[in-house]
């Protein structure tokens, strides 16, 4: 790499500017969150007497502990099942089918660009007919289905890149398809599965439309859905709203910071392949 030319300096300046723009809304929320409850603070202004207690109050009124539990349960209900089903189908489509079944793959891929809004109305009546409205299953079951296009597409792409002779070798050893899949293919696919898990976790945690339509009780919703309800109930109190929003953001941001490398990789690959 060359020494710092004007170009790279310019690039750095540009990047620092972008970073500042990215961070400003968070800082502005923080400064508002520390203003006295119920007041109308200014955009970015460190309060003379920071009210850290707003966070405590927001934790209580938002029932953060219950929210965390609810989102956690939904993620646990969606992600393992969705990843397993997608991995199996991806493997099946990549390794076990002929071109005759291309239509099946295309049927899955068709769902890739589908906006959730296109199916939300019938989903509502369907979930209601199943008697699942206002339960976490109203979010869990549809999400598994809605993630299949991306999940299958993603895992199939991975399995297509696995050299064929590997699976042949396993067969010669007398392994059945299932044990081959489980003991040979799945361990090898770990990076792809890891990325898929991260993406589905994020998408589930941040899902908004489904909880808004299908679940009224914020305590049965995802984090994003709960945040929507929190805004509905406390949006009139800017400091409390900002404190609550920051609290609700914290879990994903913390997990993101811990698994930073994997997240970035997953999000970028996810975009490229998706």
């Amino acid at each position: 790499m060359k020494s710092a030319t004007t170009n790279t300096l310019l690039a750095r300046a540009l990047i620092v500017l972008l970073m500042a723009i990215t961070l400003l809304p968070f800082l502005s929320m923080l400064s508002a969150a520390l203003a006295p409850a119920g007041s109308y603070p200014n955009g970015l202004q460190w309060p003379a007497d920071p009210q850290w207690g707003n966070f405590v109050r927001a934790f209580e009124v938002a029932k953060m502990d219950q929210l965390l539990l609810s989102s956690g349960l939904i993620v646990l209900g969606v992600v393992p099942v969705a990843v397993l089903l997608a991995t199996m189908a991806g493997y099946g489509l990549a390794k076990l089918t002929t071109d005759k079944y291309k239509w099946l793959y295309l049927a899955f891929v068709f769902g890739l660009t589908l906006p959730f809004e296109a199916v939300i109305t019938p989903l509502y009546y369907e979930v209601r007919a199943m008697g699942l409205l206002n339960t976490r299953f109203a979010i869990i079951l549809p999400l598994i289905g809605l993630y299949m296009p991306f999940g299958v597409y993603w895992m199939r792409a991975h399995f297509l890149n696995v050299p064929q002779d590997l699976s042949e070798a396993a067969q010669i050893d007398g392994a059945t398809r299932w044990t081959e899949f489980w003991y040979v293919q799945v361990p090898l696919a770990r990076p792809a599965i890891m990325s898929l898990t991260i993406l589905l976790f994020l998408w589930t945690w941040n899902q908004f439309l489904l909880p808004v339509v299908l679940v009224q009780d914020p305590m049965q919703r995802t984090m994003a859905g709960a945040l929507g309800a929190f805004q509905g109930q406390w949006g009139t109190d800017i400091p409390l709203l900002c404190a609550g929003s920051l609290l609700i953001l914290t879990p994903t941001v913390v997990i993101f910071l811990i698994f930073q490398r994997q997240f970035v990789a997953a999000l970028m690959q996810g975009a490229v392949k998706g």
């Binding site: 209601r128 206002n134 009780d217 509905g232 109930q233 949006g235 009139t236």
Partner: peptide, 21 residues
């Protein structure tokens, strides 16, 4: 008690009233 802003209530009440709980 669940609370919502008036604009949201206008949109949500038919749906909420038509559900089982």
């Amino acid at each position: 008690i669940k609370e919502d802003q008036f604009a949201n209530m206008m949109e949500n009440s038919p749906r909420i009233l038509s559900e089982d709980n």
